[in-house]
């Protein structure tokens, strides 16, 4: 099976800053992949490389095409939303639909209009007259009506309120996703998308820290809150992260035996947000007690 995205040793430097340092990626069709990292971690550079928007070193194929040399063909199969601010502000809603219908061979105008009809967006409004949420809805209506194989979303819900964010992802899953389509999404709001992801990739300082299917996370990682008196025993099992709050420790283990951990306290599968924080701030020693705990 051909990977939708296949990268080997993907690297990119901005001056002396190494934005990507030999990234390997393999994204299969039908997956919803979250590319998650702190600011400056290299996720936007990775996405720009995938979209052929910037130069890079290493090997990268997207849908079997080289984004450097075959970008024009690639964009027939790929859609992307960079963030809510990029729709031209002078453009009317009707013009946006007209334009995409005029240049995109895979655009279904009726579908876009059907989606827009469910919103409060007026056809003769200009983008600058719309709220941020409406601009996102418009952009989404345009994108959802394109029969693309890969959808790339870079912080698509930045600056939107919770209702719009929830609605955005609901629409995405209900109206876009199927077995042949793939979504690659970056966001800071990890907790809001973890339920829709099939795979998660953590990136930091231009390197991949974690690349795993969501269903394997619960098998691999365990969160333990040791019972009083078991904390030292738990530490002996070498958690890769520990946090102390209200006088009680919480630890994360990678690949530890769950039965052993169960015997030491309360265990559960960590959330993606917990894992992300743990991996980005690997604290092996107990954190300083909080004021409340003191």
């Amino acid at each position: 099976m051909t990977a939708v995205i296949e990268a080997r040793g993907l690297a990119k430097k901005y001056g002396s800053t190494q934005a990507l340092a030999g990234v390997d990626l393999n994204v299969q069709a039908g997956r919803v992949v979250g590319l998650i990292g702190p600011n400056g971690s290299g996720k936007t550079t990775a996405i720009k490389s995938i979209l052929g928007l910037t130069s890079f070193d290493g090997s990268l194929k997207v849908l079997g095409l080289d984004p450097r040399t075959q970008r024009d063909d690639l964009m027939k199969e790929v859609c992307f939303i960079a963030d809510v601010a990029v729709l031209p502000r002078w453009m009317k809603v009707s013009q946006a639909v007209e334009f995409v219908a005029g240049v995109h061979p895979r655009f279904d105008r009726a579908r876009a209009e059907e989606f827009l009809a469910k919103t409060d967006i007026k056809k003769d409004s200009r983008v600058r007259q719309l709220s941020k949420g409406m601009v996102t809805q418009l952009h989404l209506a345009l994108i959802l009506a394109i029969d693309a194989k890969l959808l790339v979303l870079d912080e698509p819900t930045l600056g939107l309120d919770l209702l719009f964010r929830r609605s955005f992802y609901d629409n995405l899953l209900n109206d876009y996703m199927n077995k042949e389509r793939t979504i690659l999404v970056t966001t800071h709001q990890v907790e809001e998308i973890e339920n829709i992801l099939t795979d998660v990739i953590f990136i930091e300082h231009g390197k991949i820290r974690l690349d795993a299917a969501m269903e394997t996370l619960a098998e691999r990682f365990t969160q333990l809150t040791p019972a009083p008196g078991n904390t030292e025993k738990a530490r002996a099992l070498r958690p890769f992260w520990e946090r102390e709050i209200f006088g009680r420790s919480t630890m994360l283990f990678d690949g530890a035996d769950v039965a052993t951990l169960d015997a030491l306290g309360e265990t559960r599968a960590p959330s993606v947000a917990d894992l992300f924080v743990a991996m980005m701030q690997p604290v092996s020693a107990p954190a300083a007690p909080s004021k409340e705990a003191a």
Binding site: L51, L53, R71, D72, M75, K76, C79, F80, I81, A82, A85, V86, L87, P88, R89, F99, V100, V103, H104, P105
Partner: peptide
């Protein structure tokens, strides 16, 4: 203008060379 208002990212998301 397309660079100033960042709309270039929208135009570049279309299959237009």
């Amino acid at each position: 203008t397309e660079r100033r208002d960042r709309s270039i990212l929208f135009w570049k998301s279309m299959p237009v060379s």
